[in-house]
């Protein structure tokens, strides 16, 4: 029983990370419908940038974070400006965007691997401090993760529901064409959502890196988990993306608890397929169906 609760707690912490990744993915996907595989590359870039400042250049921790995140934001925005917006001007299909995003992912991840090597790197060597809550053990990073998630999530909710920018982002999700007709600078908005998404990816990867280290290839499954979370939670529904992240975190913990083999990814994707076939609009939204004969 104790083991079960411990695993559930771990699952919730994982859920925080997946939720952050999912929210970042959702910022781009909900508004532009671009399947932003490069989000995974930004995730990897984030932690390696941090590593460069903190471990290599020995810049203080907080300063490292404060430099990394804006750089990531710029890279995120740059990707939209240099690749996706030009494709849009040619009226490219969404599949072309997806494939281009895949290309971007391949380039960035391999650049990082070329510079830093393929082995796992550690940010904090040594054993972490742990805290005990009635028999359940949580490391300091795990606690930090939960706290950071709560703050960031609250910030996102505030942004989306209480600010002008948030209103525009939500409007873009519903009807991007109407928005540009109304004179809103959709190009600028897109750059912002790409940047915000990148920052969220970076926060998640830095936390993960501090916990278990990283290697250049963690981005692919990160972005896939994020995408699954967004779909399960309901495309278009930001809070749903976070919920989806927790569901996946808990599911993977459950799978680890029940099997000793590596079935977590398969289980996540089985869940995705079940959702795509039976409830493509996700748990919380009433949006578009995944299967429809186009008319």
């Amino acid at each position: 029983m104790q083991l079960f609760i411990q695993l559930m707690m771990n699952g919730i912490v994982m859920g925080c990370l997946y939720a952050l990744i999912a929210l970042g993915f959702a910022f781009v996907y909900n508004t532009t419908r671009i399947f932003h595989i490069a989000h995974g590359a930004l995730y990897v870039a984030g932690v390696y940038l941090f590593y460069t400042f903190y471990n290599v250049l020995e810049v203080p921790l907080v300063v490292s974070i404060l430099i990394t995140l804006p750089i990531l934001a710029l890279i995120g925005g740059f990707l939209d400006w240099s690749v996706h917006q030009p494709l849009d001007r040619e009226n490219s299909s969404l599949l072309v965007h997806l494939l281009s995003s895949l290309g971007i992912y391949i380039v960035i991840v391999n650049l990082i691997a070329m510079i830093y090597g393929n082995e796992t790197k550690i940010i904090f060597p040594g054993i972490q401090k742990t805290f005990q809550f009635g028999g359940i053990i949580l490391t300091s990073i795990q606690l930090l993760t939960a706290v950071v998630f709560l703050i960031v999530f609250a910030g996102i909710l505030l942004l989306l529901h209480k600010t002008d920018l948030g209103k525009k982002i939500r409007a873009m999700r519903d009807d991007p064409e109407l928005l540009s007709v109304l004179g809103v600078n959709t190009h600028g908005l897109r750059l912002i959502v790409f940047s915000l998404g990148a920052v969220l990816a970076g926060i998640a990867s830095i936390l993960t890196g501090m916990d278990v280290g990283m290697d250049p290839h963690i981005g692919f499954s990160a972005v896939l988990n994020g995408a699954v979370a967004v779909i399960i939670g309901g495309v278009g529904f930001f809070e749903g993306a976070a919920a989806g992240g927790f569901i996946i975190g808990l599911l993977q913990s459950l799978i680890i608890w029940q099997t000793s083999a590596r079935w977590e990814e398969a289980g996540t994707f089985l869940l995705l397929i079940i959702f795509l076939l039976w409830r493509p609009q996700g748990l919380f939204s009433s949006g578009q169906r995944a299967e429809e004969v186009t008319v």
Binding site: L98, A227, V228, I231, A266, L270, I273, L276, P280, A290
Partner: peptide, 25 residues
């Protein structure tokens, strides 16, 4: 094949991962 657009791609991706897990485990 009942799914469209990204959802079809994602579904095939899902099966790729599931089949790999079967081969591996």
């Amino acid at each position: 094949t009942r799914l469209y657009g990204d959802y079809f791609v994602l579904a095939t991706l899902g099966f790729q991962i599931i089949i790999f897990a079967v081969l591996y485990n």
